[in-house]
C-alpha cells in the first residue's frame, strides 16, 4: 500500500518521529554532549538535545542540578552566543560559575516580575536567534506552566542553537509536556539520581547515578576542628592560628579547570 504524499511530507518534518525509527544518533547538530558519559550513553542522541526543550524536574534547588549541566554550559559559553538565566531562584553566584569554567561575559540574567513576563521573555529570547542556551525556572504549582505555554516555547525553541533547560517542580512530572527530554532529579547520599521520564525518539525509564564532586563530600567536620566561639571582648589570641586564613592567599592554580568536552 502506498502512503499518500501528504502523510510522507508530515513524516519528513523534523518534529515528527516514529517510534520504530531512531533519529540519527551522535550528530553534533542535534545534540550537545552533556559531559557525563553515563548520561550521554542513556540519551539516544548522545547528549542534550539542541533546539528543543529539556525539562529537569526537581523537588528543591541545590541538589546538584547545576553540576549536571555545568559542562555543557561551560562549552557553550565559549561560543559566540549568550546564555540566558531566566528567573533563577537565587542569585547565580559569579565566582562559582567562573570556577565551573563558564565565561561570565556570555551570561545574561533576567529576573522578570510576573509569570506573563517570564514566558514572554523566554519566547523572545528563543525566537531572536541570538540564544546559545536558555535556562528557565518555571514557577511552582501545577497550573503555573500550562501545556499551551510550554508548546509555544517548544516551537520557539526550534530557533535556538543550543539546548533549552526548563527547571520545574516534581509536581509537573505527572503532567503532559511537549518537551523533547524530561529528566527527574532526585538526591541520594552518594550524589544525584537521574530518571529519564521521556525521551523523544528513544527509550525512557533509565536511571543514572551521578556522583557529587569529591571536594563537596569531605568527611564530617571533626568537633576538635570547630573554632571556639569568641564573644565580646574576650578574644583569645591563640585560636586565630588554628584556622587557615584565606583572606589574602592567592589561588594555587592559574585559572579554573576547563571541563573536557569535544
Amino acid at each position: 500500500m502506498r502512503m499518500s504524499d501528504s502523510l510522507l511530507s508530515i513524516l519528513a518534518r523534523p518534529d515528527i518521529w516514529q517510534s520504530g525509527r531512531h533519529a540519527p544518533a551522535n550528530e553534533p547538530h542535534h545534540c550537545l554532549p552533556s559531559g557525563h558519559p553515563a548520561l550521554d550513553a542513556a540519551l539516544h542522541q548522545g547528549g542534550w538535545p539542541r533546539a528543543a526543550l529539556t525539562e529537569l524536574l526537581a523537588t528543591s534547588c541545590g541538589i546538584g542540578e547545576m553540576q549536571l549541566i555545568a559542562p555543557a554550559l561551560a562549552h557553550l559559553s565559549h561560543g559566540v552566543q549568550r546564555i540566558f538565566f531566566v528567573a533563577p531562584p537565587h542569585i547565580p553566584y559569579a565566582p562559582a560559575l567562573h570556577a565551573l569554567g563558564l565565561r561570565l561575559e556570555r551570561l545574561v540574567v533576567l529576573t522578570p516580575e510576573q509569570p506573563g513576563e517570564l514566558f514572554w521573555s523566554m519566547e523572545q529570547i528563543l525566537r531572536s536567534g541570538a540564544c546559545g542556551c536558555l535556562l528557565g525556572w518555571l514557577p511552582d504549582g501545577r497550573g503555573a506552566a500550562g501545556y499551551t505555554a510550554l508548546r509555544r516555547l517548544q516551537i520557539a525553541a526550534r530557533h535556538a542553537r543550543g539546548p533549552v533547560f526548563l527547571f520545574r517542580d516534581c509536581a509537573g512530572a505527572s503532567l503532559v509536556s511537549p518537551a523533547a527530554l524530561r529528566i527527574q532529579l532526585q538526591h541520594e547520599t552518594a550524589g544525584l539520581t537521574l530518571e529519564i521520564l521521556k525521551q523523544r525518539g528513544g527509550r525512557a525509564g533509565q536511571r543514572i547515578l551521578l556522583g557529587r564532586p569529591s571536594q563537596l563530600l569531605a568527611h564530617r567536620v571533626m568537633p576538635a576542628l570547630m573554632p571556639v566561639i569568641v564573644r565580646g571582648n574576650t578574644v583569645k589570641r591563640d585560636d586565630e592560628a588554628e584556622l587557615p586564613m584565606d583572606t589574602h592567599n592567592p589561588p594555587p592554580a592559574s585559572g579554573p579547570q576547563q571541563p573536557a568536552l569535544h
Binding site: 531562584p89 553566584y93 584565606d246
Partner: peptide
Amino acid sequence: WMQRPCWL
C-alpha cells in the same frame, strides 16, 4: 580556589 556555591 575554595568551593563556592552556585546559588547565593
